[in-house]
Design a protein around this nucleic acid. Structure first.
Lengths: 210, 210
DNA sequence: TGTCAAACAGGACGATCACCCTGTTTTGGA
DNA sequence: TCCAAAACAGGGTGATCGTCCTGTTTGACA
C-alpha cells in the first residue's frame, strides 16, 4: 500500500509537479483511502520527502551513478548515459524531464528540508562522476582534468539539455550536448583518436524515467 | 496597475512558482483588488502567459541575448554572462534560479500554450548564440564549430549549473562550469582543423507555432 | 458639461484543498 | 485463543483556491 502510494506519487510529481498533484488525485489513482494515506504519510510534505529520498535518489542511482561506475571510463560513462536517455526519449516520443531537476526547481526554495534532500542527490551524482575521473587519472586514462569541474559540467549539461528537451518535447538537445561534450572530450583526453569514428553505439535501455 | 501586477507576479512566480502563488497573495502584495486583477487578466493562466511573454523573455534578452550580441565573440559573450551572473549571485548571497528554467520545469507539461511560449524563448536564446558563432566564423574568429551545437551546449550548461546553484544555494556550479567551458574553448579555438561530423539538421520550434 | 466605455472595488460563489477524526479490519506475538 | 497495535476505511472540517458578479469611479472626447 505504501509502495503503491509512492509509485503513484512519484509518477504524479514528475508529470504534473508537487503543487499541481492533489492528495485526492493520488488517492484515486492509487486506490487508497484518505485514512490509509494519512497513516503512512502524515502530511503531503512527508510524502514528497519520501518520494525524493526513496525514489528520485534511486532513479539517479540507476540512471547515472551505476552506469558511470561500471563504464570503461568517466567520459565513456557519461557518453553512454546521454546516448541511452536520448534513445529512450526518442523511442517513447515524450519527454517528461529529469525527476531530480523537476522537483528541484519546484521545491528547493519552498522548504529547507526539500532543498537539503535534493542537494544531497545532486552531490552524490556529481561525486560518482568525479570519483570515476579520479580513478581514470590514477590508471592513466585521463589527463589533469579537475574531477569536480568535470562532474559539475557533465551534470549541468545533462540537466540543462533535459530542461530544453522537456520544453521543446524533443530529444535533440541531448544529442547536441552529447556531440559538443565529445568534441571537448576528444581534445582533453589522449590525442590519438579521431572523433568521427564511434557513433551511435547501442546501449541497453535499462533506464526508466516513466 | 497592470504593470504592478506583472511586477508582483513575476517576482512571486520566480520565488515560489506558479501553483504556489495564489491570486490572493498577488492581490495583497500588489495592493490590487480582485476586480482590477480580473479586469487585466481574466484568468491566472492569462497572467502567467503575460509574465512569460513580457517579463521572462525580456529577462533572457537583457541577461543573455544583448550581452552576447555586443560581445567581441560568442565564446567571450558566454564567458562574460557566466561571470556576471556568478558575481551577482555571490554578491546577493541568494540564488533564485533562472526565471525561464523555473517556469519551464513547472509549466511546460501543464499546458501547451505555456510550453510553446517557453520553447520560443529558449529558441531565441539559442539562436542569438548560434548567430554570434556564425558571425565569428565569417570573420575568422572561430573554427568549424557547429553553431547550433555550441548554442545548445552553452544554454544547457548555464541552465544546469543554475539548477544546481539554486538547489545548493551556492554560485559555485556556475564558476565550475565556466572553468570547464573555457577549457573546451581554449582547445576548440586553437588553430587545428577537424573534419566536422555534420549531423542531421533538427527542426526546433521557432517563435509562435500557433 | 454630458456621455460612455474602460478601470477598478469588493464581496460572494462553488469547488477543492490538506488534514483530522471516528470506527473497523487485519496482523503478529503471547 | 486472545489481545494490543498497526493498517486501513470514509466521511467531515475549516481554510483557501480561482473565478465571477454587481456597483462605483475615472478619464477621454464630443
Amino acid at each position: 500500500m505504501r509502495r503503491k502510494v509512492l509509485d503513484v506519487a512519484e509518477a504524479a510529481f514528475q508529470a504534473r509537479g508537487y503543487h499541481a498533484s492533489s492528495l485526492g488525485d493520488l488517492m484515486a489513482a492509487a486506490g487508497v483511502s484518505g485514512g490509509a494515506l494519512h497513516h503512512h504519510f502524515p502530511t503531503k510534505k512527508a510524502l514528497a520527502l519520501a518520494v525524493i529520498e526513496e525514489r528520485v535518489a534511486a532513479a539517479v542511482d540507476e540512471t547515472w551513478i551505476a552506469p558511470v561506475r561500471r563504464a570503461a571510463s568517466a567520459r565513456e560513462g557519461v557518453r553512454q548515459v546521454f546516448e541511452a536517455v536520448a534513445a529512450e526519449l526518442e523511442q517513447q516520443g515524450f519527454v517528461r524531464g529529469c525527476p531530480l531537476n523537476n522537483l528541484a526547481h519546484e521545491l528547493s526554495l519552498a522548504d529547507p528540508e526539500f532543498r537539503i534532500a535534493l542537494a544531497g542527490i545532486f552531490s552524490a551524482w556529481r561525486q560518482a562522476i568525479a570519483d570515476k575521473i579520479s580513478a581514470d587519472q590514477q590508471e592513466g586514462r585521463e589527463q589533469a582534468t579537475d574531477p569536480q569541474h568535470f562532474a559539475v559540467f557533465a551534470v549541468a549539461a545533462y540537466s540543462g539539455a533535459m530542461s530544453m528537451a522537456k520544453t521543446a518535447q524533443d530529444a535533440g538537445p541531448l544529442r547536441d550536448c552529447l556531440a559538443a561534450l565529445e568534441r571537448c572530450a576528444s581534445q582533453a583526453t589522449s590525442p590519438q583518436r579521431e572523433p568521427g569514428t564511434r557513433r551511435r553505439r547501442r546501449v541497453l535501455p535499462r533506464f526508466g524515467t516513466s
